[in-house]
Nucleic acid binder design. Structure first.
Lengths: 111, 111
DNA sequence: AAATTTAATCGTAATATTGCGATATTAAAA
DNA sequence: TTTTAATATCGCAATATTACGATTAAATTT
């Protein structure tokens, strides 16, 4: 039915999913990379960088913010968005631990 | 319209997105974590582990495989699925580089 | 205060994803 | 060779996501 029952999974699994979802779209990856390149990081900036309408970019930014991937502070008429270091650290750590676990297991059945 | 024009983004951005999408669902994260825990990693295993029907799990596995997150080898009537180390390495490296870049920039406007 | 600038929100259309029962497929077992 | 076991695929319904024009909201300029 297309309904995802988050209650069937652990809190940690849902939190991880939220961060991954916040990046699981080429526009979001492009936003991430743009925020990495630029120090100054205003929404209007991103709109002119991407092939998307202002409303669409704003919506992407909203969801990335909601998930904790980015932070935003109002600066006059514009908004300064930037990456949330701890979210990146979380994902980096997650995949790092996964790799460690995988490597500690040695060769498995598929390789 | 809900249509994502991958052609508007770089090849690398789309590849990164594909891997992230393969994990951007609690069931997929649960599958990843299950494959980490178990050496023996058969689909039926996963079905009994998750609160989802066999057809649904099979579909998730198919998409994770298509994205390159997991590998699968047929073993008689069952299939042995396991994590693709290089996909994990890719993601780990991606977030690692992002973090390095971010930290090299020092404090930015939002912190 | 009016005009301007910038970003958020609303409403809606289109597409994508998720889930599952039913069925098909394929290999092993009996 | 029939039966059984394990996955994959099909078809469809329900929900979620994406996109954008139009509008609103809020701060800055004029």
């Amino acid at each position: 039915m297309g309904v995802t029952k988050t209650s069937d999974f652990t809190e940690a699994q849902n939190q991880t999913t939220a961060l991954l979802k916040a990046l699981a779209h080429p526009a979001r990856v492009a936003i991430l990379e743009h925020l990495l390149r630029e120090q100054r990081c205003i929404c209007g900036d991103i709109v002119s960088e991407l092939p998307l309408a202002q409303a669409t970019v704003s919506q992407h930014l909203k969801e990335m913010k909601q998930a904790g991937m980015i932070l935003g502070t109002v600066e006059g008429t514009s908004v300064c968005y930037c990456l949330n270091t701890s979210a990146l650290e979380f994902l980096h750590g997650y995949f790092g631990r996964a790799l460690d676990t995988l490597k500690a297991q040695g060769a498995n059945c598929c390789h």
